[in-house]
Every structure is written in structure tokens, then in C-alpha cells.
Design a protein around this nucleic acid. Structure first.
Lengths: 261, 261
DNA sequence: CAGGCATACTCGTATAGACGAGTGGGCAAG
DNA sequence: CTTGCCCACTCGTCTATACGAGTATGCCTG
């Protein structure tokens, strides 16, 4: 193995940059230059303590900078590793186009199969509940809604958690209220019920996850979430569904095609 | 002031949840419930040390959890404060529609003025440079490009940093290569030059910022960035511009309108 | 040979103390 | 009254130490 000094350099005691930041800089630069590759183990705390001649807390402070940036992650009992960039799922803006609903399976399953990954959908929950203020506003002042919650996994890793909200007068008693909405998903059912879809509106935010989201998506530290809220409108201009989706940001690229007119 | 005990409760020594996480939980819950409002000062480290009977590093550890989540931020010499949610800028998917180019001022300025904020654009840089591999691939194997860099500020706060790349054979010697591209921006110039725009493609990612981005956008810790890469295509299917934009995620909501067909 | 245990190495949590530096209020000198 | 200094309070950085808990390896025992 290459010696640490040649990989990492030394602390500059004259610099007014904090020691732990200098160490973080060294490590970050080494990672950026490929001296440490994805998934590879970084020097242990003890090794860095000896190399730099600082206390262990200082080294840990440096690591916490890197993990906060999403560059590294610690594994108890093993070491600190360069965080590998997971394969990303591309969400195209035409993923809800009518032609895609013809196929029996859901878009998520079809696409993942095509990409050679193993898709799963779990923690189905379908129930009626009180609409939050936000959902109510988006759906046009409804009081109670049907909520369909599900979590999507790719090769065993949770990547997305989504909840669809539908007005009760549309969904109650239909197949939409069943755990399995049938081929083409709920959008196909909505159209069969006479709610012809006209357009979608998607709102996108990015933020750090709440603790519950960290658990549900098993997020590593330093990984933000993409929060997408999609509202589906029928040809009469009525909002017929709101879908609230939280995605692990390191697993997604969203892609939109827009006319220039 | 309400006493700390009533606001925050106590450590559960039988729990196997780490003490600093329990303290973080207490503070987070108090913030969520509105016991501490936006911009308000949290109890000082010393106060929490006394209240919980733990060491200062443990309290600091708790704070670092909250700042990592983007819920709080520390100000040296003053205290730790609940991070206020800044006003967000809404980017509509039709913001580059032809009709918006008629007006003289740039979209950013017009929109910000309308929202009552004070917009600024700075650090103009326009120069020819070698295309990165990625940019070259997106523009169709060009070697050198014209790069237009600028930073956008709202009420003095940097919120966005953008670079437009254009093939030299299109941009060289035109007003596009000037610092001020004129009314309607470079898209208006491209159309005047005969490159009629057909559609845009936008790719969206979210991630934690690199250190240089933290500096450029003066990002608080716990704030991710939205990385948007837009490619503009003309009616002949040629990519005529790639715009690479990094936005402070807490300042933006992206909004897209999609046909359901 | 197989299973289990000891051990060494890893990171996780917590303590106690020291000094530095930014902030703001009050007091004293001009 | 104004200026300037001091001080108290704040967070920032760093050291040194201790113990706990997860992991991997190799040896020892049965």
C-alpha cells in the first residue's frame, strides 16, 4: 500500500483553516483524484491520528464533514468507505403517457426489469383518511380522501415512497380502493371511470430528509431527498389525484421534455 | 420564558438511543410543534448542558444533527437558531416560452421584480474554452465552446449559479459572445440567427453541494443543491445550447406542466 | 474437521478540560 | 453624550481518556 504521507500531505499550522477541515480537504481531494476509489476503505481513525499527530476527535470531525457531504460513510466495526454512487433511475416526463398504460405491468416494474434490476413494491396501505390542508387545497377543498401508500425498492434497496390521494367521491367502491388497482394502474381506472386525464402538474423540491424518511428509505447520511408532488387534472379541469413522492436523491435523475413554443 | 424542563423533557437512561440523539429528538420535536419559531434562538449549549446533565460535546453533537438536517444553524458568538425557510422562487416549465422572450428584461429580473424582491446578476464571465466530455457529448461532439457564467442573487442572497455552453460555430462573433446578450436573452439571439428552437430537455438531480458551491452560493449547512442541466434543440434536431445550473435547494420549487396524452 | 471463543481492530458515545474568537451590553473615562 | 474598553456569554476547535459495540480472524478445543 502507498504510504499515507504521499497520499495526504501534512497539516499547515500557519493556515487559519481549522485542522479538521484541512484533513477533510486532503481526504476529499484524494477521493476526487481517484486515489481512493468508490467503495474503497479510507485510512482508519487510528492511522490518521498517527499520520497527522492530532487527537481522535479531530479526525472524527473530519470524517463527519465528508459524510455530511455524502462523500463517505462509516460502517461500525469495519471502517470508513468512499460512498459508491448507486445506479440512478431515470424518470422521463412522458412516463405517464397514455401509451405506457396499455401494458399490463406498472411503469416501475417494466422499467426496472428492462434495466436488469430486481424491482419490488411493498408496504401497501390503502385507506380513507382526513385530507391535510395542503392536499385538500390541491384537490379542491375535499375533506376526506383515499390514500394509497407504497414503497418502491430496487435490488432490495428502498428508493422511493409515494402516497396517492384521491377524492372519495371518485375512488370509493372502485378498484382504485383495492390494494391492486389492476393493469395500467389507477390512471387507467380513472379514465375507465370517465375521468379523462388532461395534464399533470409536478412540483419539485429538494431537502434533507426527516428522520422518518431516513428510516423508510434507509438513507445514508449526506443524501438529500427529492420531493415531488404531482397533481393530475381531467379534461374538465378538476384535480382527480395528488401523488406525493419522496425519492432518495442519489438514486434518481428526473428528465423533462419541454416544447419551446 | 418557559422553563427548559417543560419544553424539552428528560433523557431516558434505559433507552438504547444515544443521549445526543435523544436531545436532538427533543429539540426537533419542539421545533416541529412550534415551541421554537423560525429564526428564534434555541437554548445555549451551556443551558442544555445544565438541563440534561451531560457534557458540552454531547450537546454540540445534538446540534450538529439538527444543522445537518437543515433545521438549525449556529451563529458564532450569538447562539443556535431555528433556520428560517427563505422565500422560494418558483420556476415554471414555461419560463422559456417564446412569448416570455418578447419582453426586454430577462426572465429572472421580471419575475423577481413582480415578487417584490431585489434581483441581481453578477460575476459575468464570457469566454471560449475546451468542452468537458459531458458537455461535448450533449452538444454533439464539439471540441470548444463559448461559456457564459453568471450568478443570480435575490435580495442580496446568491440563489443560483449557471453556465451556458454554446458551440463556437454558432456563437462566435455574435451578440451571444457579448457580456450583455440583449433583450430576450440568448434564446432570442439564437432564433434571430436562424436557429429556431424546437424543444428543451431538462435533467434534474439533487445532491449535497461541493465546497466550491458552498462558497459561491453561501450555503448554510444542511442545504442541498438542485442541479439542472438543460439542453436546447433547434427544429433541425441540433443541440444549440447546454445550460448547467446549480440552485440552492431551499430557495426553489420547480414546477412542470405535462400533457397526459 | 467444525464450532466456538479470544482477540485485535474498527467506529460509536461520552466525559472533562482548555483556549480561541465573535457578539453585545454596561460601565467608565473623556 | 459619546467613545472606548472590559466582561460575560456565545459557539469553534482541540486534547486526552474511557468504555462500549460491531467485525473479522485465527487459534484452540472438542
Amino acid at each position: 500500500m502507498t504510504s499515507l504521507p504521499s497520499l495526504l500531505g501534512d497539516i499547515d499550522p500557519t493556515s487559519d483553516r481549522a485542522v479538521f477541515l484541512q484533513i477533510a480537504d486532503h481526504l476529499r481531494e484524494a477521493i476526487d483524484r481517484g486515489r481512493f476509489k468508490e467503495g474503497e476503505k479510507l485510512p482508519s481513525e487510528a492511522e490518521l491520528v498517527e499520520h497527522y499527530g492530532v487527537s481522535r476527535m479531530t479526525v472524527r470531525n473530519s470524517f463527519s464533514v465528508l459524510t455530511g457531504e455524502g462523500l463517505a460513510h462509516a460502517e461500525h466495526g469495519k471502517g470508513v468507505f468512499v460512498r459508491p454512487r448507486p445506479p440512478v433511475r431515470r424518470l422521463a416526463s412522458d412516463r405517464f403517457a397514455r401509451r405506457h398504460r396499455e401494458q399490463g405491468k406498472s411503469a416501475f416494474i417494466v422499467e426496472a426489469d428492462a434495466a436488469g434490476s430486481h424491482p419490488q413494491v411493498d408496504s401497501l396501505e390503502v385507506k380513507e383518511e382526513k385530507a391535510t390542508q395542503d392536499i385538500s387545497a390541491r384537490l379542491g377543498s375535499v375533506r376526506r380522501v383515499l390514500a394509497r401508500r407504497r414503497r418502491y425498492l430496487l435490488d432490495g434497496r428502498p428508493v422511493e415512497f409515494a402516497t396517492s390521494y384521491l377524492p372519495l367521491d371518485i375512488a370509493r367502491g372502485t378498484q382504485i380502493a383495492e390494494p391492486n388497482p389492476g393493469p395500467g394502474g389507477i390512471y387507467a381506472r380513472l379514465e375507465e371511470l370517465g375521468h379523462h386525464l388532461d395534464h399533470f402538474e409536478e412540483e419539485i423540491r429538494a431537502r434533507m430528509p426527516a428522520p422518518s424518511e431516513v428510516r423508510t428509505l434507509r438513507l445514508a447520511s449526506g443524501v438529500p431527498v427529492i420531493h415531488l408532488i404531482r397533481t393530475a387534472y381531467d379534461t374538465e379541469g378538476r384535480a382527480v389525484e395528488v401523488c406525493d413522492t419522496v425519492m432518495a436523491a442519489d438514486a434518481y435523475v428526473l428528465s423533462y421534455q419541454l416544447p419551446a413554443t
